[in-house]
Design a protein around this nucleic acid. Structure first.
Lengths: 237, 237
DNA sequence: CTGCTGATCTGGTATAGACCAGGAGTCTGA
DNA sequence: TCAGACTCCTGGTCTATACCAGATCAGCAG
Protein backbone atom coordinates (compact mmCIF):
# COMPACT_ATOMS: atom_id res chain seq x y z
CA UNK A 1 0.00 0.00 0.00
CA UNK A 2 3.01 2.23 -0.43
CA UNK A 3 1.08 4.01 -3.18
CA UNK A 4 -0.96 6.01 -0.70
CA UNK A 5 0.02 9.60 -1.20
CA UNK A 6 0.39 10.33 2.49
CA UNK A 7 2.91 7.50 2.82
CA UNK A 8 5.04 8.91 0.03
CA UNK A 9 4.67 12.21 1.76
CA UNK A 10 6.22 10.79 4.92
CA UNK A 11 9.22 9.73 2.85
CA UNK A 12 9.66 13.19 1.43
CA UNK A 13 9.19 14.73 4.84
CA UNK A 14 11.81 12.42 6.28
CA UNK A 15 14.25 13.73 3.70
CA UNK A 16 13.26 17.23 4.67
CA UNK A 17 13.96 16.46 8.32
CA UNK A 18 17.51 15.43 7.56
CA UNK A 19 18.10 18.65 5.67
CA UNK A 20 19.42 21.13 8.20
CA UNK A 21 18.54 24.12 6.03
CA UNK A 22 14.91 23.13 5.65
CA UNK A 23 13.86 23.43 9.26
CA UNK A 24 15.47 26.22 11.19
CA UNK A 25 15.86 25.59 14.86
CA UNK A 26 14.34 22.16 14.46
CA UNK A 27 11.00 23.63 13.53
CA UNK A 28 9.10 22.50 10.48
CA UNK A 29 7.41 24.88 8.07
CA UNK A 30 3.74 25.54 8.74
CA UNK A 31 1.21 22.89 7.76
CA UNK A 32 -0.38 25.18 5.20
CA UNK A 33 3.01 25.85 3.63
CA UNK A 34 3.88 22.17 3.44
CA UNK A 35 0.46 21.24 2.10
CA UNK A 36 0.88 23.76 -0.69
CA UNK A 37 4.43 22.71 -1.43
CA UNK A 38 3.41 19.07 -1.76
CA UNK A 39 0.20 19.95 -3.59
CA UNK A 40 -2.21 18.36 -1.21
CA UNK A 41 -4.61 19.33 1.54
CA UNK A 42 -3.85 19.89 5.19
CA UNK A 43 -5.86 16.80 6.06
CA UNK A 44 -3.62 14.51 4.04
CA UNK A 45 -0.49 16.32 5.12
CA UNK A 46 -1.49 15.93 8.75
CA UNK A 47 -1.92 12.21 8.19
CA UNK A 48 1.71 12.09 7.12
CA UNK A 49 2.81 14.20 10.08
CA UNK A 50 0.91 11.93 12.48
CA UNK A 51 2.79 9.01 10.97
CA UNK A 52 6.15 10.64 11.65
CA UNK A 53 4.95 11.54 15.12
CA UNK A 54 4.24 7.86 15.72
CA UNK A 55 7.76 7.05 14.61
CA UNK A 56 9.03 9.50 17.19
CA UNK A 57 10.72 11.73 14.61
CA UNK A 58 8.69 14.85 15.21
CA UNK A 59 6.39 16.20 17.86
CA UNK A 60 3.99 19.07 18.15
CA UNK A 61 3.91 21.95 20.56
CA UNK A 62 0.38 23.17 21.05
CA UNK A 63 -0.44 25.64 18.28
CA UNK A 64 3.19 26.60 17.91
CA UNK A 65 4.20 24.14 15.26
CA UNK A 66 5.92 20.85 14.58
CA UNK A 67 9.43 20.21 15.80
CA UNK A 68 12.11 17.65 15.14
CA UNK A 69 12.32 15.27 18.09
CA UNK A 70 15.70 14.91 19.78
CA UNK A 71 17.34 11.54 20.30
CA UNK A 72 15.68 9.29 22.85
CA UNK A 73 16.98 9.22 26.36
CA UNK A 74 18.42 5.90 27.49
CA UNK A 75 16.89 4.98 30.78
CA UNK A 76 17.27 1.97 33.01
CA UNK A 77 14.35 1.87 35.45
CA UNK A 78 15.92 -0.96 37.39
CA UNK A 79 18.92 1.09 38.42
CA UNK A 80 18.65 3.80 40.95
CA UNK A 81 20.79 6.39 39.31
CA UNK A 82 19.03 9.73 39.69
CA UNK A 83 17.31 11.35 36.74
CA UNK A 84 19.75 14.23 36.82
CA UNK A 85 22.71 11.89 36.67
CA UNK A 86 21.81 9.90 33.65
CA UNK A 87 20.43 12.82 31.72
CA UNK A 88 23.71 14.64 32.22
CA UNK A 89 25.66 11.48 31.45
CA UNK A 90 24.10 11.61 28.00
CA UNK A 91 25.11 15.19 27.47
CA UNK A 92 21.64 16.60 28.02
CA UNK A 93 20.36 19.19 30.44
CA UNK A 94 17.95 17.95 33.13
CA UNK A 95 15.47 20.03 35.07
CA UNK A 96 12.86 19.12 37.64
CA UNK A 97 9.80 20.96 38.91
CA UNK A 98 8.03 19.82 42.02
CA UNK A 99 4.32 20.26 41.41
CA UNK A 100 2.94 19.07 44.71
CA UNK A 101 3.84 17.41 47.98
CA UNK A 102 1.62 16.17 50.73
CA UNK A 103 1.15 13.42 53.27
CA UNK A 104 -2.13 11.59 53.38
CA UNK A 105 -3.69 8.21 52.54
CA UNK A 106 -3.47 7.10 48.92
CA UNK A 107 -5.45 3.91 48.37
CA UNK A 108 -3.89 3.24 44.98
CA UNK A 109 -0.36 3.28 46.35
CA UNK A 110 -1.50 1.31 49.37
CA UNK A 111 -2.96 -1.40 47.21
CA UNK A 112 0.13 -1.62 45.04
CA UNK A 113 2.27 -2.14 48.12
CA UNK A 114 -0.18 -4.43 49.89
CA UNK A 115 -0.93 -1.99 52.69
CA UNK A 116 -4.29 -1.03 54.21
CA UNK A 117 -6.21 1.59 52.26
CA UNK A 118 -5.91 4.19 55.00
CA UNK A 119 -2.13 4.00 55.04
CA UNK A 120 -0.74 7.55 54.67
CA UNK A 121 2.13 8.33 52.30
CA UNK A 122 4.64 11.04 51.65
CA UNK A 123 3.66 12.02 48.17
CA UNK A 124 5.72 13.97 45.66
CA UNK A 125 4.49 14.91 42.23
CA UNK A 126 6.91 16.35 39.74
CA UNK A 127 7.57 17.18 36.16
CA UNK A 128 10.93 16.57 34.58
CA UNK A 129 12.59 18.13 31.58
CA UNK A 130 15.33 17.18 29.19
CA UNK A 131 16.80 20.20 27.41
CA UNK A 132 13.73 22.22 28.42
CA UNK A 133 11.28 19.77 26.95
CA UNK A 134 8.89 18.32 29.51
CA UNK A 135 9.10 14.58 28.95
CA UNK A 136 8.02 12.99 32.21
CA UNK A 137 5.23 13.46 34.74
CA UNK A 138 5.65 11.32 37.81
CA UNK A 139 4.17 10.74 41.21
CA UNK A 140 5.85 8.85 43.98
CA UNK A 141 4.62 7.68 47.34
CA UNK A 142 7.00 6.79 50.13
CA UNK A 143 5.94 4.97 53.28
CA UNK A 144 6.60 7.62 55.98
CA UNK A 145 7.88 5.13 58.55
CA UNK A 146 10.73 4.22 56.20
CA UNK A 147 11.93 7.78 55.73
CA UNK A 148 10.80 10.07 58.57
CA UNK A 149 11.16 13.73 57.70
CA UNK A 150 11.55 13.11 54.00
CA UNK A 151 9.48 16.05 52.86
CA UNK A 152 11.27 18.44 55.18
CA UNK A 153 14.62 17.67 53.63
CA UNK A 154 16.15 18.64 50.33
CA UNK A 155 14.45 15.97 48.25
CA UNK A 156 14.70 17.96 45.05
CA UNK A 157 18.35 18.49 44.35
CA UNK A 158 19.70 15.06 45.14
CA UNK A 159 18.68 11.62 44.04
CA UNK A 160 15.78 10.51 46.16
CA UNK A 161 16.89 6.91 46.11
CA UNK A 162 20.37 7.96 47.08
CA UNK A 163 18.92 9.69 50.12
CA UNK A 164 16.77 6.72 51.06
CA UNK A 165 19.99 4.77 51.13
CA UNK A 166 22.30 7.20 52.81
CA UNK A 167 19.98 9.04 55.21
CA UNK A 168 17.75 6.15 56.20
CA UNK A 169 19.99 3.21 55.45
CA UNK A 170 17.43 1.50 53.28
CA UNK A 171 18.38 -1.10 50.75
CA UNK A 172 15.93 -1.15 47.90
CA UNK A 173 16.26 -4.80 47.21
CA UNK A 174 13.00 -6.06 45.81
CA UNK A 175 11.46 -4.21 42.94
CA UNK A 176 8.73 -4.93 40.58
CA UNK A 177 8.10 -3.02 37.39
CA UNK A 178 5.13 -2.70 35.12
CA UNK A 179 5.47 -0.94 31.84
CA UNK A 180 3.15 -0.43 28.91
CA UNK A 181 2.30 1.98 26.16
CA UNK A 182 -0.67 4.20 26.81
CA UNK A 183 -2.49 7.32 25.76
CA UNK A 184 -1.50 10.01 28.23
CA UNK A 185 -4.28 10.72 30.72
CA UNK A 186 -5.74 14.22 30.76
CA UNK A 187 -3.86 15.37 33.82
CA UNK A 188 -0.42 14.18 32.76
CA UNK A 189 -0.95 15.45 29.23
CA UNK A 190 -1.77 18.88 30.61
CA UNK A 191 1.32 18.87 32.81
CA UNK A 192 3.49 17.99 29.85
CA UNK A 193 1.82 20.54 27.64
CA UNK A 194 0.53 18.09 25.07
CA UNK A 195 -2.93 17.05 23.94
CA UNK A 196 -4.79 14.45 25.96
CA UNK A 197 -4.41 11.11 24.29
CA UNK A 198 -0.87 11.73 23.07
CA UNK A 199 1.07 8.48 22.96
CA UNK A 200 2.98 7.79 26.14
CA UNK A 201 4.71 5.12 28.13
CA UNK A 202 3.63 4.25 31.63
CA UNK A 203 6.12 2.88 34.14
CA UNK A 204 5.06 1.76 37.60
CA UNK A 205 7.38 0.53 40.29
CA UNK A 206 6.91 -0.99 43.69
CA UNK A 207 9.92 -1.17 45.94
CA UNK A 208 10.55 -3.23 49.05
CA UNK A 209 13.59 -3.32 51.28
CA UNK A 210 15.71 -6.33 52.20
CA UNK A 211 13.21 -7.33 54.87
CA UNK A 212 10.44 -7.08 52.30
CA UNK A 213 8.93 -4.10 53.95
CA UNK A 214 7.17 -1.79 51.49
CA UNK A 215 9.15 1.37 50.83
CA UNK A 216 7.87 3.16 47.79
CA UNK A 217 5.44 3.12 44.91
CA UNK A 218 5.73 5.35 41.87
CA UNK A 219 4.08 6.04 38.58
CA UNK A 220 5.83 7.61 35.65
CA UNK A 221 4.25 8.89 32.45
CA UNK A 222 6.72 9.54 29.64
CA UNK A 223 6.26 10.98 26.22
CA UNK A 224 6.50 7.93 23.98
CA UNK A 225 9.25 9.34 21.79
CA UNK A 226 11.42 10.58 24.62
CA UNK A 227 12.96 7.40 25.87
CA UNK A 228 14.47 4.05 25.21
CA UNK A 229 14.31 1.63 28.11
CA UNK A 230 17.48 -0.36 28.67
CA UNK A 231 17.99 -3.08 31.23
CA UNK A 232 21.21 -4.87 32.07
CA UNK A 233 21.02 -8.18 33.87
CA UNK A 234 24.19 -9.76 35.14
CA UNK A 235 22.76 -11.98 37.81
CA UNK A 236 22.40 -15.72 37.96
CA UNK A 237 20.19 -17.75 35.66
CA UNK B 1 -10.25 21.04 25.72
CA UNK B 2 -12.76 18.43 26.73
CA UNK B 3 -15.28 20.33 24.64
CA UNK B 4 -14.02 18.93 21.39
CA UNK B 5 -16.78 16.78 20.01
CA UNK B 6 -14.51 13.90 19.15
CA UNK B 7 -13.36 13.71 22.78
CA UNK B 8 -16.91 13.48 24.04
CA UNK B 9 -17.41 10.87 21.36
CA UNK B 10 -14.65 8.75 22.85
CA UNK B 11 -16.48 8.84 26.17
CA UNK B 12 -19.70 7.67 24.61
CA UNK B 13 -17.86 5.01 22.65
CA UNK B 14 -16.19 3.80 25.83
CA UNK B 15 -19.63 3.30 27.34
CA UNK B 16 -20.64 1.44 24.24
CA UNK B 17 -17.63 -0.82 24.57
CA UNK B 18 -18.64 -1.88 28.04
CA UNK B 19 -22.13 -2.73 26.85
CA UNK B 20 -22.05 -6.37 25.84
CA UNK B 21 -25.18 -6.07 23.69
CA UNK B 22 -23.81 -3.21 21.64
CA UNK B 23 -20.95 -5.01 19.98
CA UNK B 24 -21.59 -8.60 19.11
CA UNK B 25 -18.54 -10.80 19.07
CA UNK B 26 -16.40 -7.88 20.15
CA UNK B 27 -16.98 -6.12 16.88
CA UNK B 28 -18.08 -2.51 16.72
CA UNK B 29 -20.81 -1.28 14.41
CA UNK B 30 -19.62 0.10 11.08
CA UNK B 31 -18.09 3.57 10.99
CA UNK B 32 -20.92 4.89 8.84
CA UNK B 33 -23.48 3.55 11.28
CA UNK B 34 -21.71 5.08 14.27
CA UNK B 35 -21.22 8.39 12.50
CA UNK B 36 -24.93 8.56 11.78
CA UNK B 37 -25.88 7.52 15.27
CA UNK B 38 -23.71 10.22 16.82
CA UNK B 39 -24.71 12.77 14.19
CA UNK B 40 -21.27 13.52 12.89
CA UNK B 41 -19.06 12.69 9.94
CA UNK B 42 -16.84 9.67 9.50
CA UNK B 43 -13.81 11.93 9.70
CA UNK B 44 -14.63 13.07 13.21
CA UNK B 45 -15.75 9.64 14.26
CA UNK B 46 -12.48 8.16 13.07
CA UNK B 47 -10.63 10.71 15.17
CA UNK B 48 -12.42 9.32 18.18
CA UNK B 49 -11.71 5.74 17.15
CA UNK B 50 -8.03 6.54 16.67
CA UNK B 51 -8.02 7.90 20.20
CA UNK B 52 -9.42 4.67 21.61
CA UNK B 53 -6.98 2.74 19.49
CA UNK B 54 -4.16 4.69 21.14
CA UNK B 55 -5.57 3.75 24.52
CA UNK B 56 -5.41 0.13 23.47
CA UNK B 57 -9.16 -0.41 23.87
CA UNK B 58 -9.93 -1.23 20.27
CA UNK B 59 -8.02 -2.26 17.19
CA UNK B 60 -8.77 -2.52 13.52
CA UNK B 61 -8.61 -5.46 11.22
CA UNK B 62 -7.90 -4.34 7.69
CA UNK B 63 -11.18 -3.41 6.04
CA UNK B 64 -13.09 -5.80 8.25
CA UNK B 65 -13.98 -3.48 11.06
CA UNK B 66 -13.08 -2.36 14.56
CA UNK B 67 -12.80 -4.83 17.40
CA UNK B 68 -12.60 -4.63 21.14
CA UNK B 69 -9.03 -5.36 22.22
CA UNK B 70 -8.53 -8.19 24.70
CA UNK B 71 -6.66 -7.70 27.95
CA UNK B 72 -2.94 -7.16 27.63
CA UNK B 73 -0.61 -10.06 28.01
CA UNK B 74 1.76 -9.86 30.96
CA UNK B 75 5.26 -10.54 29.76
CA UNK B 76 8.59 -10.57 31.53
CA UNK B 77 11.35 -10.35 28.92
CA UNK B 78 14.01 -10.98 31.52
CA UNK B 79 12.72 -14.44 32.34
CA UNK B 80 13.15 -17.30 30.01
CA UNK B 81 9.77 -18.86 30.31
CA UNK B 82 8.63 -19.83 26.85
CA UNK B 83 5.97 -17.84 25.05
CA UNK B 84 3.63 -20.82 25.10
CA UNK B 85 4.01 -21.21 28.85
CA UNK B 86 3.14 -17.74 29.95
CA UNK B 87 0.38 -17.30 27.41
CA UNK B 88 -1.26 -20.46 28.69
CA UNK B 89 -0.59 -19.45 32.28
CA UNK B 90 -2.83 -16.47 31.65
CA UNK B 91 -5.61 -18.58 30.29
CA UNK B 92 -4.97 -17.66 26.66
CA UNK B 93 -4.26 -19.80 23.65
CA UNK B 94 -0.80 -19.43 22.10
CA UNK B 95 0.21 -20.30 18.56
CA UNK B 96 3.45 -19.91 16.67
CA UNK B 97 4.22 -19.90 12.97
CA UNK B 98 7.77 -20.21 11.76
CA UNK B 99 8.14 -17.94 8.78
CA UNK B 100 11.73 -18.57 7.86
CA UNK B 101 14.92 -20.25 9.00
CA UNK B 102 18.40 -20.06 7.56
CA UNK B 103 22.04 -19.92 8.48
CA UNK B 104 24.19 -17.14 7.09
CA UNK B 105 25.96 -13.95 8.16
CA UNK B 106 23.80 -11.23 9.68
CA UNK B 107 25.82 -8.07 10.27
CA UNK B 108 23.17 -6.49 12.49
CA UNK B 109 23.13 -9.40 14.89
CA UNK B 110 26.90 -9.61 14.71
CA UNK B 111 27.26 -6.00 15.66
CA UNK B 112 24.83 -6.32 18.55
CA UNK B 113 26.86 -9.21 19.94
CA UNK B 114 30.24 -7.69 19.18
CA UNK B 115 31.18 -10.30 16.58
CA UNK B 116 32.76 -9.83 13.17
CA UNK B 117 30.32 -8.88 10.44
CA UNK B 118 30.80 -12.12 8.54
CA UNK B 119 29.82 -14.23 11.53
CA UNK B 120 27.06 -16.64 10.43
CA UNK B 121 23.98 -17.22 12.56
CA UNK B 122 21.16 -19.69 12.90
CA UNK B 123 18.25 -17.45 12.17
CA UNK B 124 14.60 -18.09 12.99
CA UNK B 125 11.82 -15.73 12.08
CA UNK B 126 8.39 -16.33 13.47
CA UNK B 127 5.00 -14.91 14.11
CA UNK B 128 3.16 -15.54 17.34
CA UNK B 129 -0.51 -15.45 18.18
CA UNK B 130 -2.58 -15.04 21.29
CA UNK B 131 -6.11 -16.37 20.85
CA UNK B 132 -5.62 -16.28 17.08
CA UNK B 133 -4.60 -12.66 17.01
CA UNK B 134 -1.12 -12.11 15.62
CA UNK B 135 0.57 -9.92 18.21
CA UNK B 136 4.29 -10.50 17.79
CA UNK B 137 6.75 -10.72 14.90
CA UNK B 138 10.20 -11.76 15.99
CA UNK B 139 13.55 -12.72 14.62
CA UNK B 140 16.27 -14.45 16.56
CA UNK B 141 19.86 -15.21 15.76
CA UNK B 142 21.78 -17.87 17.62
CA UNK B 143 25.55 -18.28 17.38
CA UNK B 144 25.86 -21.74 15.72
CA UNK B 145 28.88 -22.77 17.78
CA UNK B 146 26.79 -22.49 20.96
CA UNK B 147 24.02 -24.75 19.73
CA UNK B 148 25.16 -27.06 16.93
CA UNK B 149 22.29 -28.66 15.08
CA UNK B 150 19.73 -26.24 16.46
CA UNK B 151 17.75 -25.86 13.26
CA UNK B 152 17.57 -29.59 12.71
CA UNK B 153 15.88 -30.16 16.04
CA UNK B 154 12.35 -29.51 17.19
CA UNK B 155 12.83 -25.84 17.93
CA UNK B 156 9.18 -25.02 17.44
CA UNK B 157 7.25 -26.98 20.01
CA UNK B 158 9.45 -26.44 23.03
CA UNK B 159 10.92 -23.37 24.61
CA UNK B 160 14.03 -22.43 22.68
CA UNK B 161 15.76 -21.17 25.78
CA UNK B 162 14.86 -24.32 27.62
CA UNK B 163 16.59 -26.31 24.89
CA UNK B 164 19.67 -24.08 24.92
CA UNK B 165 19.92 -24.95 28.58
CA UNK B 166 19.09 -28.63 28.50
CA UNK B 167 20.53 -29.75 25.18
CA UNK B 168 23.60 -27.58 25.08
CA UNK B 169 24.10 -26.84 28.76
CA UNK B 170 24.19 -23.12 28.26
CA UNK B 171 23.49 -20.72 31.08
CA UNK B 172 22.06 -17.49 29.76
CA UNK B 173 23.57 -15.34 32.41
CA UNK B 174 24.21 -11.91 30.97
CA UNK B 175 21.41 -10.19 29.18
CA UNK B 176 20.83 -6.74 27.97
CA UNK B 177 17.49 -5.38 26.87
CA UNK B 178 16.45 -2.41 24.82
CA UNK B 179 12.84 -1.49 24.58
CA UNK B 180 10.99 1.43 23.04
CA UNK B 181 7.75 2.38 21.40
CA UNK B 182 7.82 2.52 17.63
CA UNK B 183 5.73 2.61 14.50
CA UNK B 184 5.78 -0.92 13.13
CA UNK B 185 8.07 -1.24 10.12
CA UNK B 186 6.51 -2.25 6.82
CA UNK B 187 7.60 -5.85 6.99
CA UNK B 188 6.48 -6.57 10.53
CA UNK B 189 3.22 -4.72 9.98
CA UNK B 190 2.50 -6.91 6.97
CA UNK B 191 3.28 -10.06 8.92
CA UNK B 192 0.92 -9.00 11.66
CA UNK B 193 -1.77 -8.01 9.20
CA UNK B 194 -1.91 -4.36 10.21
CA UNK B 195 -1.16 -1.11 8.43
CA UNK B 196 2.43 0.06 8.28
CA UNK B 197 3.00 2.64 10.95
CA UNK B 198 0.68 1.04 13.48
CA UNK B 199 1.90 1.67 17.01
CA UNK B 200 4.16 -1.05 18.31
CA UNK B 201 6.73 -1.91 20.92
CA UNK B 202 10.20 -3.01 20.00
CA UNK B 203 12.17 -5.30 22.30
CA UNK B 204 15.76 -6.28 21.54
CA UNK B 205 17.84 -8.66 23.58
CA UNK B 206 21.44 -9.71 23.56
CA UNK B 207 22.36 -12.77 25.56
CA UNK B 208 25.74 -14.01 26.76
CA UNK B 209 26.58 -17.11 28.72
CA UNK B 210 28.41 -17.35 32.04
CA UNK B 211 31.77 -17.05 30.28
CA UNK B 212 30.48 -13.97 28.50
CA UNK B 213 30.43 -15.71 25.18
CA UNK B 214 27.75 -14.34 22.86
CA UNK B 215 24.83 -16.72 22.51
CA UNK B 216 21.86 -15.00 20.96
CA UNK B 217 20.41 -11.78 19.66
CA UNK B 218 16.75 -11.21 19.05
CA UNK B 219 14.31 -8.55 17.96
CA UNK B 220 10.65 -8.56 18.83
CA UNK B 221 7.96 -6.32 17.43
CA UNK B 222 4.73 -6.33 19.41
CA UNK B 223 1.41 -4.68 18.80
CA UNK B 224 1.41 -1.83 21.28
CA UNK B 225 -1.88 -2.79 22.89
CA UNK B 226 -1.08 -6.46 23.25
CA UNK B 227 1.25 -6.48 26.18
CA UNK B 228 2.26 -5.19 29.53
CA UNK B 229 5.91 -5.63 30.39
CA UNK B 230 6.57 -6.77 33.93
CA UNK B 231 9.93 -7.24 35.55
CA UNK B 232 10.66 -8.68 38.96
CA UNK B 233 14.01 -7.95 40.55
CA UNK B 234 14.96 -9.73 43.71
CA UNK B 235 18.70 -9.52 43.43
CA UNK B 236 21.31 -7.37 45.07
CA UNK B 237 21.19 -3.65 45.65
C1' DC C 1 -20.11 -30.40 -4.06
C1' DT C 2 -16.78 -27.06 -5.92
C1' DG C 3 -15.10 -23.12 -7.68
C1' DC C 4 -15.95 -18.78 -9.75
C1' DT C 5 -18.47 -14.27 -10.15
C1' DG C 6 -20.15 -10.37 -8.66
C1' DA C 7 -22.76 -7.50 -5.43
C1' DT C 8 -22.19 -5.39 -1.27
C1' DC C 9 -20.28 -4.90 2.89
C1' DT C 10 -16.18 -2.72 5.31
C1' DG C 11 -12.54 0.66 6.22
C1' DG C 12 -8.80 3.61 3.59
C1' DT C 13 -7.63 7.73 1.19
C1' DA C 14 -8.38 12.18 -0.55
C1' DT C 15 -10.47 16.86 -1.75
C1' DA C 16 -11.97 21.67 -0.52
C1' DG C 17 -13.30 24.56 2.46
C1' DA C 18 -14.64 26.75 7.02
C1' DC C 19 -14.15 28.45 11.52
C1' DC C 20 -12.07 28.15 16.33
C1' DA C 21 -8.54 29.11 19.82
C1' DG C 22 -4.05 29.49 21.67
C1' DG C 23 0.82 31.62 20.98
C1' DA C 24 3.58 35.34 20.08
C1' DG C 25 4.74 39.16 18.80
C1' DT C 26 3.54 44.45 17.76
C1' DC C 27 1.58 48.50 18.45
C1' DT C 28 -0.34 51.95 21.29
C1' DG C 29 -1.60 54.85 24.78
C1' DA C 30 -1.03 56.04 29.62
C1' DT D 1 8.90 52.48 30.07
C1' DC D 2 5.45 49.27 30.34
C1' DA D 3 1.01 47.03 30.62
C1' DG D 4 -2.69 45.90 27.85
C1' DA D 5 -5.09 45.48 23.47
C1' DC D 6 -4.75 44.04 18.82
C1' DT D 7 -3.28 41.30 14.99
C1' DC D 8 -1.46 37.64 12.63
C1' DC D 9 0.29 33.12 12.60
C1' DT D 10 -0.10 28.50 14.07
C1' DG D 11 -2.30 24.16 14.68
C1' DG D 12 -7.04 22.11 16.21
C1' DT D 13 -11.61 20.79 14.94
C1' DC D 14 -15.30 19.88 11.85
C1' DT D 15 -18.42 19.42 7.71
C1' DA D 16 -19.74 17.17 3.41
C1' DT D 17 -18.55 14.40 -0.13
C1' DA D 18 -16.24 11.26 -3.31
C1' DC D 19 -14.03 7.33 -4.82
C1' DC D 20 -10.79 3.27 -4.00
C1' DA D 21 -9.71 -1.44 -2.48
C1' DG D 22 -9.84 -5.42 0.34
C1' DA D 23 -13.15 -8.80 2.80
C1' DT D 24 -17.10 -11.42 2.66
C1' DC D 25 -20.66 -14.03 1.21
C1' DA D 26 -24.65 -15.35 -1.63
C1' DG D 27 -25.65 -17.38 -5.72
C1' DC D 28 -24.75 -19.54 -9.88
C1' DA D 29 -22.52 -22.53 -13.16
C1' DG D 30 -19.98 -26.56 -13.88
Amino acid sequence: MSDAYYLRLTDRLRELLSDPHACEEGRLPAERTLAERFRTTRVTLRQALAQLEGEGRIHRSNRRGWFVSPARLDYDPTRDAGFNDYVRAQGRRPRTEVLLTDTRPYPTAAEALGLPADQPFCHIRRRRFVDDRAVLAESLWVVPERAPGLLEGDYASHSLWGQLRSRWGLSLTHRSLRLYSEALPEREAAELGVAAGTAGLSVRRTIFDERRRPVEYDEEHWLHDALCITVELDGKA
